[in-house]
C-alpha cells in the first residue's frame, strides 16, 4: 500500500497538468508506505513526449543521496498518461524498477481522472497493482 499526502499529491497533479499534453515524471519520497514529498523531474526522452518519458538518472542519484542525508526514502516514481487511462503499459514494464512503486496518473484535457500504483517483478515481465491512497480518494 502507498499513501500520498496532500502536499505531495498537489505537486504531482500540478506537474501532470503543466506538462500536458506530454507525459510528466517524478519521484516520491517519504518513509515506509507514506509519501510526503513529490519531486517533479524533467522528461528527458528524446522524441515525442506525449507518450513517452525518461527520468535523468543523475536526478535519481541526487535524490537518493539527499534522502539518505534527510532520513527519508525514495519510495517510488510517478508519471502521467495524457488522455489515457492509468494502466501500466508494456513500455512502462520494460523500463521500471522492481525495487520501487510506480504511480500512473490519468490526465484528460488537463483534468485528473484516476491514479493507480504498480509493482513489477525482477525480470520486468509482470506488473501487479498495489493499493494506492491519495487525498479525497
Amino acid at each position: 500500500m502507498i499513501e500520498i499526502n496532500e502536499a505531495a499529491w498537489q505537486v504531482m497533479l500540478d506537474h501532470a497538468r503543466d506538462t500536458y499534453p506530454n507525459e510528466c515524471c517524478g519521484m516520491l519520497t517519504g518513509t515506509g508506505t507514506q509519501v510526503t514529498a513529490a519531486i517533479p523531474c524533467k522528461n528527458i526522452y528524446q522524441g515525442d513526449q506525449s507518450d513517452r518519458f525518461e527520468i535523468d538518472p543523475h536526478d535519481i542519484l541526487r535524490v537518493q543521496r539527499e534522502s539518505i542525508q534527510q532520513g527519508q526514502e525514495l519510495i517510488g516514481f510517478f508519471h502521467s498518461h495524457p488522455d489515457e487511462d492509468a494502466y501500466f503499459s508494456a513500455t512502462d514494464l520494460k523500463n521500471a524498477s522492481p525495487w520501487h512503486a510506480h504511480v500512473v496518473l490519468s490526465i484528460r484535457q488537463r483534468e485528473f481522472r484516476n491514479a493507480k500504483a504498480f509493482r513489477v517483478d525482477l525480470d520486468l515481465t509482470e506488473s501487479t497493482e498495489e493499493e494506492l491512497l491519495w487525498p479525497k480518494s
Binding site: C25, Y45, D51, R52, F53, P57, Q64, H79, T91, D92
Partner: peptide, 11 residues
C-alpha cells in the same frame, strides 16, 4: 559507489 535504477516508460 551508487546503485541507481533506470526509469522510463510510456503508453
Amino acid at each position: 559507489i551508487s546503485i541507481v535504477p533506470s526509469i522510463a516508460g510510456g503508453r
